[in-house]
Design a binder for these strands. Structure first.
Lengths: 340, 340
DNA sequence: ATGAAAGCGCTAACAG
DNA sequence: CTGTTAGCGCTTTCAT
């Protein structure tokens, strides 16, 4: 039973020695810069030696010599949240093979903080993508490498980003609800101090008001779990009922599921008595009845767009213009004509 | 509007020059090895200069000089799948601050392959964690750094791992079902060529047989989506019904949700007519009625255990013994006494 | 207590 | 076409 002391790493020197050439030549060939500069016979020999010896380029040394790393950092609150895992998926799909992806998440707690950001700065990244930062988190931020902000309209004046058209989405949603005759809507927000989350509430409220409706009741939850929404809504419902609320909008769809659950328990008919909508189109929609009307924030596209933009940035050196991704309202069974 | 050409990086040399000491001293202090070796006045000065200049250790150079990197690689099929995202969460929580985590996932397709593994080998990782590899993927694998296999009993004779007690879980499940009088059960499998998945089916079958019951019908699905299970089950049901199936077990709970949906459409009462169970306890349980009985594979614990074990491995140099994590059957409303 | 020096393994001019 | 040279920024003896 050999306990596995791993063999010393094979270096370019070993390959060079074996072939009888210099390290520089090995470097050229291995990096695919050999064509037209190194005799093809030599290339042959080098590749053979590489295979025989099991040589692999030392990325660390390569990065150091070259002066830039080839890994990009992705900062996000919680990979367990479908929204972020989908952004991640989109991002990873959009990145070139040579780029690797390291994940920076909070050490504890459900959202990342300055500490996480510090770690991101400390790592040697070719580029950085920061997803949905808290409102003031970026205030004193000085980028040390090409950096992109996701879903954080104006969190930082100098850093380009990819945004979701939350305002447009809120407008669509307001149209939809007002069109169904909803005059009084309740809003379930997330207390996390994020620009994107706050915009959702504000944009909805002002769009509604323009149409003669209004947000007349609020709930603000600390944690992004189904049960927190369920419990809070159960408690709040009598007052909301009295206030004439006929529709509830949740800043995050996960909360909408909680509200739905509470509604079932309380015997509130959705959508007969109460219409229900959430932002974020989580992959639960087929699971639950009635299926929820929701604002699709297309996390996958967001990730993909970020990947593409960052690569552009890395290649050209020019920061991309901040872009806005469209969102769309997906109408399902949880919204209907206002009950009164 | 200054387009952001980033300033040249501050090096230890800059700090040394500012303080009037040598780079070596800076290195010592910055790495916390200064106590008792560097005058505290000098340390003071160095820290001040570090702060003033905004010096950050170049991880790449450090790793090169030191001969080992401080990032660990995590290879997994799909971060979108709650099972893996929870493993990831557990892992990230268990890792020391100094260790960073890079993610290796398939470039395309839903499961990773040799290419992904190559990339993992090519990166310079301090350690590697490979989650639920396909059955023969590890066959010719030669580790280049401390490596751990997750949920892959015996995929490789020499590589230690953390396993889930799938056999024990299958036993509990068989007891539960047989105890409720189920004699004929249908199994919905996942075609992915994974040791863990195949073990689930086999262990269940043999446990059931020991109790006088049996798996009498099979479905094997290519993709891990709810809809694939829904459609396949809809088609298969008449035959399964005829075969006297009173319970369905799904190798992955996501499929169980699909079966549940099909059952609703077909008017099959769950659990009155048909009991339903899945492996993996996805975070959907509160959403759907009836809530599914399932085998909790504790992804979070798996990730945490892996993180702890790998760190041990890195520090001691000794490969940890392969360990087995307990699993447990969580009985909810989707299983009941056999209908006949 | 501190500095000089020799690398870590690779890349990028620059000579020939 | 290929080798020599000079680093990349840091760590680590080993003198002083």
């Amino acid at each position: 039973m050999t306990t596995g002391a791993l063999p010393r790493r094979v270096t370019a020197r070993d390959v060079a020695r074996r072939v009888g050439c210099s390290v520089a030549t090995v470097s050229l060939v291995v990096n695919g810069k050999g064509e037209g500069r190194v005799a093809s016979s030599t290339q042959q020999l080098i590749w053979e030696a590489v295979a025989d010896l099991g040589y692999r380029l030392n990325q660390t040394a390569s990065a150091l010599a070259r002066g830039r790393s080839s890994t990009i950092g992705f900062v996000c609150p919680d990979p367990t949240n479908p929204f972020f895992s989908m952004v991640l998926e989109g991002l990873s799909g959009a990145l070139d093979d040579e780029l690797s992806l390291t994940l920076l998440m909070p050490n504890q707690g459900s959202d990342y903080d300055l500490g996480t950001l510090q770690r991101a700065l400390a790592g040697d990244f070719a580029g950085l993508i920061i997803a949905t930062p808290g409102r003031h988190l970026m205030d004193g931020f000085v980028p040390t490498c090409p950096t992109l902000l996701l879903d954080a309209a104006e969190a930082h004046p100098r850093i380009p980003g990819i945004d979701l058209d939350v305002v447009g989405a809120a407008g669509q949603l307001a149209d939809h609800l007002a069109g169904l005759g909803h005059r009084a809507v309740g809003y379930v927000g997330v207390s996390r101090d994020k620009a994107s989350l706050q915009t959702r509430r504000q944009a909805l409220a002002s769009s509604l008001e323009r149409l003669g409706s209004a947000v007349v009741a609020d709930l603000e939850l600390d944690v992004l779990t189904l049960s927190s929404a369920r419990d809070a809504f159960s408690t709040a419902w009598p007052a909301w009922d009295a206030a004439g609320v006929t529709a509830v909008v949740c800043g995050d769809e996960l909360h909408a599921y909680g509200v739905l659950q509470a509604a079932r328990t309380l015997g509130i008919d959705v959508p007969g008595r109460l219409s229900l909508v959430g932002f974020n189109d989580l992959p639960y929609s087929e699971l639950v009845q009635p299926r929820l009307t929701s604002v699709n924030l297309s996390a996958l596209d967001l990730g993909a767009a970020a990947g593409a933009a960052l690569q552009e940035y890395l290649i050209t050196g020019e920061p991309p213009a901040t872009t806005m991704l469209p969102t769309r309202l997906v109408v399902r069974e949880s919204t209907a004509r206002a009950s009164r």
